[in-house]
Write a protein that binds this DNA or RNA. Structure first.
Lengths: 347, 347
DNA sequence: CTGTTAGCGCTTTCAC
DNA sequence: GTGAAAGCGCTAACAG
């Protein structure tokens, strides 16, 4: 490993603007100008070319940290997720990264584990690092004040998880509409007795889905089994557990079940299968998010498309717009039902 | 939005060490010492407490950018993935983030899209940002020199994707052993005619899996159908396409197929199903990675466990060790076969 | 067009 | 124990 050695006698990365200036026999500020696309006009073409040549030969790399100290901009956007292990957030991060790249910015990641004190810590830490902005995928209602406080210092955009009663810019899906779509779909198939497997209450997506579903179900005159227990976390195991409990608690089977996300639906499917209840022959099942593998389940899962990448992309765009002094609007993406084999007309 | 206003008259984040010094009526360097855990001993207890109190009251946050300029350490580790849309990398990033957090560092992300020039750009950019180290998940053989060059400046660790003929520290799984496990498993079930659906050649994981599989198959006296086409990318669609081609090209069916990852296996399953070929009755099928949903497919997929989170965690640990001047060893994690319903004894 | 000067916020000698 | 002074690498007035 050469690093140790080269570190001592100066590796390529440690060539500074001053070194270039000395080698090119000009003043540092001239180098600064020559290398800045915006200002290279103010430098004589010949010197500019000379400087660039010298800089190249020396392997000069601008120090963005030093530049950041001066300019106040770090080119870094903090991205705060609840849990990077959750496949739902990945496409959002992907989208954010794609948007930032166009502006030469880079995302820096942290995880709250859905823990409020951790969220506060992370916000603090990110301010200390002078991130230019924050995209929060992890917002829970409890985090609202902390996020709004952060927004006093740098722009904050919420992505994928909305918050009630806030002025923060939000890029999310219309979850109520999504819930309604599911109820509409089930109604159109003749279902009259339905139930929900709820995701955690404190993540606004889930109560909104529930509200949309219930309101449409009521409007259609459907009967919803009352089952208010919510999953601790919206994961496969919890879906299975809730489905088990619903089956144990209910005197009669619903003809259709709406699981608040695909992972919970997969768990529900396992629960039903274990008891010999067939999907969709005995019970129809709907998920949410349209994860890539849901189409390959048996039966393929009916679900609601959540354009996570798009959410991330637009959130990234919004944060860059805020930094440019513009005032981006909230975005509410429209859900779309993806009808597959796990739902069928009730006999 | 208060930001604009507060930006003008000074928001909480802009309280500097100098402000604290002035308010506490001491010299800036005393504040610096009082707030540095390592040096707080050299400050009188009373002044220290006073300073801390004042700092708190003013809402002082150290500026990590300024500190970084001085110390040369940014507390940032560059993480380079090929494609954040690939669910295989997410747990690795998750693991890296978890390890870094313990050291107060944060990952900064970029994507190569498996494009070599982009890799070079990203490395450049990350050096410019003075990242303290780099964890590369995206290594292709073509990137070797660029990564080794970066390693002259800051420590580089490879995670999840190995590289041949390099001294870079690597944290990966023993893919050859994984391939052998699959062949052993199929042999133990009496399979004699087998085939592989190959992942891209330029990602060392896949040729290694292929090599391990073939060598064990040969050792067991099994016959491997020659089918050398490799997927462009290791995804569902490509798995389906390759399976289709294999079926079209081969005069007789293999009794078992090894898809180089789970996504390709899912595609293969769809292809087989479309032709009325049953898994596992007619053909056994094996994947690789043990993605969470594979257990819920019909049939549940036999696969090889890849401890991605662990790979990330250890890679993060390795990079922090390198920064601490230690010399971590390469890590080669042992794969484990997860036997499920998609493979059965041949009749 | 180019050089001079100053300083971003912090740490770190070196004095006293 | 604390203060003074210098400087990390860069940019941004301001001169000339």
């Amino acid at each position: 490993m050469d690093r140790k050695k080269t570190m001592t006698d100066g590796w390529s990365g440690s060539v500074t603007l001053n070194d270039v200036a000395r080698a090119a026999d000009v003043h540092p500020s001239t180098v600064s100008r020559a290398l800045d696309p915006d200002k290279s006009g103010r430098v004589k073409e010949a010197t500019r070319l000379h400087i660039i040549e010298v800089a190249d030969k020396l392997g000069y790399r601008p120090d963005l940290v030093a530049r950041g100290l001066k300019s106040g901009k770090t080119g870094t956007i903090g991205v705060i997720a609840a849990d990077l292990g959750n496949t739902f957030v990945t496409p959002i991060i992907h989208g954010v990264a794609a948007s930032l790249e166009k502006a030469g910015a880079l995302p820096t990641l942290a995880e709250t584990q859905d823990d409020h004190p951790r969220m506060v810590n992370i916000l603090d830490h990110m301010m200390s690092r002078r991130v230019d902005g924050i995209v929060a995928l992890a917002a829970r209602q409890a985090d609202k004040e902390a996020l709004e406080r952060a927004n006093q210092s740098v722009p904050v955009v919420l992505a994928g998880r909305p918050l009630d009663d806030t002025d923060l810019i939000q890029v999310v899906q219309d979850n109520e509409a999504g819930g309604r779509l599911v109820a509409d779909h089930l109604h159109s198939l003749g279902h009259e007795i339905v139930a929900q497997l709820r995701g955690p209450d404190d993540v606004a997506n889930f109560p909104r889905r529930a509200r949309g579903f219930t309101s449409a179900a009521v409007a259609h005159g459907m009967q919803e089994l009352s089952f208010d227990e919510a999953a601790e976390r919206p994961v496969i195991d919890e879906g299975q557990r809730l489905m088990d409990e619903l089956l144990d608690a209910s005197p009669h089977l619903p003809t259709a079940v709406f699981a608040h996300n695909d992972l919970m639906a997969i768990g529900a499917l396992a629960s039903l299968r274990n008891r010999g209840i067939r999907v969709p022959e005995d019970v129809s099942l709907v998920g949410y998010n349209n994860l890539p593998t849901t189409a390959y389940l048996t039966p393929p899962l009916t679900t609601v498309r959540y354009q996570s990448f798009e959410v991330g992309r637009l959130a990234g765009k919004a944060i860059m717009a805020l930094l440019a002094g513009e005032a981006p609007a909230n975005v509410l993406l429209e859900p779309r039902l993806v009808s597959r084999g796990s739902t069928r007309r009730v006999r």
